[in-house]
Design a protein around this nucleic acid. Structure first.
Lengths: 191, 191
DNA sequence: AGCGATCTTGACGCATGGTTCAAGTTCCAC
DNA sequence: GTGGAACTTGAACCATGCGTCAAGATCGCT
């Protein structure tokens, strides 16, 4: 496990970096399914180079997903952790995840697992899901959130909102979150 | 306005009928965006014939949408009209429309207006939407349904569920309706 | 039966986007 | 500086699906 890297030539090194940056930009704007042509153009190289260096979309995603998305998700998890009221914490988490899905197509793609799954992507999802499970349990313990809601339901509700967010491109943001709020209300206990 | 039909040759007549039937089958199974090739193959003719006879997807849809979908939607409207309780009536309407969207891709496509809109399709949608508006108003009059819900919200909730239904192909039906139920709950007044 | 009008065919051109690879270019160690 | 390994290119191939049209097949009137 020592020096495993055969060391890239200087120009190749430069290209790898350029492609990574371009991928960050393009994926950020249009999601992880953007044409690789677009990434190549943005990086000033040709498609073939991406295949050489990253082995295709899959490898390229692996190379940027962390920097692209991880922070956004862990940021939400952290921020929400500071909220005292468990119900508020749970609902705030969903609200923020749902908005993230609207605002960042790439994060959405990750949460939807809509591309050939990679280790990095899966790890992120697992992490988010575990967290959601905990938040749910705490919220349910107060009796204010429906007891029949399962952790799987929560995942699928996130999945559903992601699907909608993806189709929402021309739909206004506040309509989207207005309707998210209705769904959220539906998760409360019938009092 | 007398005899407007220049009368088709017998073989053409036969083909028109065959294509209509094939379109009904294929659209029923895979939605209104099925490749026209598939319809042609099912009808035992070539693509070109569809273009000749119907002018393309648009015309073909116009020719079958009524038989394909109208009855399903008006059926729901009628069935639901017999329910006394306005809240029950409203909720039952949404439930049934949402299930229709899951069960029939073609009906879903119509409700989503996801293809080049035609007169027939639009008329159907308008009709459904007007009905939904009335049901909503009645339900709200009881005070049991959120007063801040608008007719437009209802349309968009139908749109959202349609988008989900479309992506749901491999998702189980009862999970879909389970989550529909959550959304429905969210439309009740906070009591 | 024959002829012209009607009808159908299927190959073509378009566009999108993934994936590959022979040929050409650039780097760098010597 | 130069030779050869490392690197890049871009055109070629794939597949999907729409829409068109010249050429050939069929119908049905006379």
């Amino acid at each position: 496990m020592t020096s495993e890297t055969p060391r890239l030539r200087a120009d190749a090194q430069r290209n790898v970096e350029g492609i990574r940056q371009a991928a960050l930009d393009v994926f950020r704007a249009h999601g992880l399914n953007s044409p690789l042509d677009a990434v190549a153009r943005a990086a000033g190289v040709s498609k073939g180079t991406i295949y050489h260096r990253f082995g295709g979309r899959q490898g390229l995603i692996d190379a940027v997903v962390e920097e692209l998305v991880a922070e956004r998700i862990t940021g939400i998890i952290t921020a929400v952790g500071a909220i005292e009221d468990p119900v508020e914490r749970f609902e705030s988490y969903l609200r923020q995840i749902w908005l993230l899905q609207y605002d960042e197509p790439a994060a959405n793609d990750v949460l939807l697992r809509s591309m050939p799954a990679s280790g990095a992507v899966n790890a992120l999802c697992e992490h988010a899901n575990e967290n959601a499970g905990r938040l749910l349990a705490d919220a349910q313990a107060t009796g204010k959130v429906r007891a029949d809601l399962t952790a799987e339901d929560v995942c699928l509700l996130i999945w559903e909102r992601g699907i909608i967010a993806r189709a929402c491109a021309e739909q206004p943001r506040d309509g989207y979150s207005r309707r998210s709020e209705y769904t959220l209300r539906g998760l409360r206990s019938a009092s």
